[in-house]
Design a protein around this nucleic acid. Structure first.
Lengths: 207, 207
DNA sequence: CCATGTGAAGGTATTCACAGCC
DNA sequence: GGCTGTGAATACCTTCACATGG
């Protein structure tokens, strides 16, 4: 089975593997076994082998996987080799934190534009990105930006997404805690931080 | 099937339903059908009915669900009726944004303590919470806080969790992009923001 | 020998379709 | 007529065990 259909759950784990592979590469390794990778990322080795099996042979029995080759392949599958630039809409507390967040770089991603409606904020620079008026959204595609992060209040999340969709954006990471609609051609992932915290007590021991 | 084993995926959706129910209650409704709830939260109606079926009859055929009763039951299942207070460790950009984040209230959750190692920050108040030295972690349980949010740099995430575990914390929401270990009795959910962004390009159309 | 890759088995979650109740 | 609750069917994902290859 080569390159056919990669399960969603596998796609969800690919960034984890990428992180682990890069970490191992930094330490100067060239090869890594599914077992060592398993230990470093916290996923079972058989799961890793199964996941990798969906997109071809990268391993050498008795040796392991070539780290560089495998990392590049994962980046290619996730399309991180092509999509590198993202825009941020909404530079409030969360938006500012995202601008300062160093973690995107590990995946080759970078926030290169930021928008807000507050005239007080427009023109200011945060973490090296100048805040523009939201009208700038309309020309995102001309600037080769196809990915957007929405960090606006819930009440204006849908209209923000509508505008991004109209501008030709193809993917949205939405932090607003609500459903947002978009045409099928636009992928939306909603990440509700409070929701994650809210399901935690369920799993906590009672005593 | 009453109250036996609620699937993890159902637990993951319960907070979404809670949000939808509260929204509907605010509008003055007393009952809601699985169809209307479905429309407002973006989950199919059969999925909702199936999910609710795991914990008893709350619906009346021809009428729908009693919103208040159902909401209270979901809160009880998630244990949000008991666990209401959380602590934050790491008051950097992300931590500060979390302190200011209004979304936790919808689930009855509240960040009531914050810790950092930076003497510059200790003693200052952000969003009504005074920042304390990390040594205060050790007395969290005495203050009836069993839930912690970790927003520290990756390099110190594990030791932070270790200290929280030693203090008797029972649940951790970890924002550091790495694996953290904890005894089985402590539930850890890791939320890697960059990872969510990284899997988005995979789903974006190629053209 | 050691580690991969994968069929097969087992488990979990989603989707359907409809009986039963208001 | 409208809507719930749920067995049954289906799809999906995980786990195992081992044949295969360097």
């Amino acid at each position: 089975m080569r390159y056919h259909k990669i399960p969603d759950e596998t796609v969800r784990r690919l960034p984890i593997y990428l992180r682990g592979l890069m970490f191992s590469a930094e330490k100067g390794n060239e090869h890594i076994s599914s077992q060592s990778l398993a230990a470093s990322v916290g996923v079972h080795s058989w799961q890793i082998r199964k996941d990798f099996s969906y997109f071809g042979d990268f391993g050498t029995p008795g040796v392991g996987y070539n780290i560089g080759k495998l990392a590049r392949e994962i980046q290619k599958i996730l399309r991180l080799d092509v999509i590198k630039r993202a825009a941020l809409v909404g530079v409030g507390d969360l938006g500012s934190a995202l601008l300062a967040y160093p973690g995107f770089g590990a995946y080759g991603l970078d926030i290169v534009a930021a928008f807000d409606i507050d005239p007080q904020k427009i023109g200011r620079t945060i973490s090296g990105v100048e805040i523009e008026d939201v009208s700038g959204i309309d020309s995102l595609v001309q600037r080769s930006i196809f990915l957007a992060i929405v960090a606006v209040p819930r009440q204006v999340a849908q209209q923000t997404v509508d505008r991004l969709v109209a501008a030709g954006i193809k993917g949205v990471l939405n932090f607003a805690p609500c459903k947002v609609e978009a045409p099928k051609r636009v992928k939306v992932i909603t990440l509700d931080i409070a929701m994650e915290l809210a399901r935690l007590p369920y799993y906590m021991p009672v005593s």
